[in-house]
Design a protein around this nucleic acid. Structure first.
Lengths: 348, 348
DNA sequence: ATGAAAGCGCTAACAG
DNA sequence: CTGTTAGCGCTTTCAT
């Protein structure tokens, strides 16, 4: 473990092989027009020295990197963890290395993260979470790094996301089909604003079509005892048992739904007998027998593949996306996965 | 969104401020001995141009980066996801950016990941999972990147890990305290070999002390219907109901334990009435009412803090860790968290 | 088919 | 206190 000695450079290889740097470079980059004999000699020298090209130098001179920046909402949330993994996989599939910044819903962190990524001259940035406010936005726009939003929408960049509104509608219609009419929509900060609104819009559509009254979103931070409706704080327990209590709740994300289920468990309320629950995302957790959450499945695989694909496209056919181009919006379909957390409305 | 135009360089700033590059550099690096007036002028120019130092160039010339490579076992596993998040947090706390490689238990991927990290001249590497085989090992050793293993041990580098053996002992003693004597040890590939062995050793210690017979590890890949004991494949279901069935199982990791719980649920076996379960890790999931897994808690926060701390130490006081130094091994304590998945042994 | 040479943006001596 | 200069390792014309 003797580190002080510096790694060999292209020059060392050239010397050992008895050729010039350029020739070595040509061999490395696999340009043709190198004599077979020379090539072998160089390759041998590379082996002997355990030469490893300095990506820094290469990227520096080429003025472009093969690194993608990824802004993640919160790796503790399995939805993000699963997405992050897939993004990484597709990045490396395209020959890019992924650099993650976990922003934990914190705008400061997000800004710092973007800053760092930009300084490292990442070739592009994947947003798995929006920074909420816009400073980072402006940074990026002007700092001209290609950007793609995956799993959410922003109007200043390309995005690949599921059809949230349709998901909301499907979830709600499913509950309506079970005879529910007092259906609430509950959301948590883990969901991006846009997605949240779209899911609620889908919910409203379904309710309206069925002739039921749509309620405003119930905002909950899992772990807290109270929620907000409009601006008004109310005890969550009260909402679940009060006079206007819903017989079903559509929750904007699985982790939120599971947390709510947990809350109900603790308060001795039955799912789905007292209240049916439907989530959104279909994280792997949702499939466990003990959780068995009915949910709207997002095609994670597609989101990642299309998202990274689009970003790489932007990067590689570089800048000429005419100034005024409106962002490309890609939508992938969702589908309902019915499990045990939803059931018939109590008769009465 | 007009990207073609190149970002401003230190030279542009110098020109605008009417000073030399060095002066700008001095301002940026905050070396003292720059006239207040000059500094302001430079700062202004930086603002006006939205200049952002090129980390690539800086790192290139300094011959050192502020990037840490992280090899993650599998982000789908909440244990790794949680660790990854904490590693990232502590990295950035020390001024380093984290680059993740998700290796999904695949040696090829691991090797490729290490290769890429090395080419990017990362300042150091955190292993959250070992590469299993040793090629990557040799690479690194000779390529001299400081390395630290977090949550596992390897004999060729520093490590920060929980006291696995003690954890195994605690878990087993807990079960023994409940009157169990037919206790099995079950493990899955999600756990590193060393950790696995140490946890099993702890189990054996406890069993021996109590005068019970320790069994060889049951190896299970969650999702599969059969397991291996020694080399012999057997149906998992059979093991759980057969004549020699255990009344308690200590599982080497939470995700495995939860999967086993799931398996039992599906097969209509009760936890803990038929079989008690104890896991290892204490992932956040384990605390859910519906899971309620008794487990051995690893202090994730400490692991991450100490691991990154040690790595940074190695990096910053650079090479002189005498050639023959045996690796520094840091051990953090574990503690048992008792929940509902363990209970008294059936009387009989 | 190979080599020579000019930089990429920045830092770090060293002069002034 | 500020400017000059010599690289860092590599790619990329352009000659040979």
């Amino acid at each position: 473990m003797q580190r002080p000695i510096k790694p060999p450079t292209i020059f060392d290889v050239a010397a050992l092989a008895g050729v010039s740097k350029s020739t070595v470079s040509n061999v490395i980059r696999d340009v043709d027009g190198v004599a077979e004999l020379t090539r072998t000699r160089v390759l041998e020298a590379i082996q002997r020295l355990e030469y490893r090209p300095n990506a820094l130098a290469r990227q520096f001179v080429q003025q472009r990197t093969t690194t993608l920046g990824v802004l993640v909402g919160d790796l503790d949330n399995p939805f993000y963890a699963e997405m992050a993994k897939l993004i990484e996989r597709w990045s490396s599939h395209h020959g890019y290395l992924a650099m993650f910044c976990n922003i934990e819903g914190d705008d400061e962190l997000a800004l710092g993260g973007v800053e760092a990524l930009l300084e490292h001259r990442v070739a592009g940035i994947v947003f798995l979470a929006s920074s909420g406010r816009s400073p980072a936005v402006e940074e990026l726009l002007r700092q001209r790094a290609p950007v793609v939003f995956v799993g959410l929408r922003e109007d200043w960049g390309d995005s690949v996301a599921a059809s949230d509104a349709e998901g909301g509608r499907l979830a709600t219609e499913h509950l309506i089909g079970y005879g529910h009419r007092a259906i609430a929509y509950l959301t948590t900060p883990a969901v991006e604003q846009r997605a949240d609104r779209a899911r609620h819009a889908g919910y409203r559509t379904a309710m309206r079509r069925a002739g039921f009254v749509a309620r405003p979103p119930v905002r909950w931070i899992p772990g807290h005892e109270h929620v907000r409706i409009g601006g008004r704080p109310t005890a969550l327990a009260e909402i679940l048992v009060g006079a206007h209590r819903p017989t079903a709740v559509f929750v904007s994300n699985d982790i939120g739904a599971i947390a709510l289920q947990e809350f109900m468990d603790v308060h001795r309320l039955s799912v789905p007998d007292d209240i049916s629950l439907v989530g959104f995302d279909n994280v792997s957790l949702a499939a466990f027998a003990r959780i068995s959450l009915t949910t709207v499945a997002q095609p994670l695989e597609d989101l990642a593949r299309l998202g990274v694909g689009r970003l790489v496209e932007l990067i590689e056919r570089d800048g000429q996306l005419g100034t005024g181009n409106s962002p490309r919006v890609i939508t992938v379909p969702v589908k309902l996965v019915v499990r045990g957390s939803s059931g018939p409305a109590p008769s009465g």
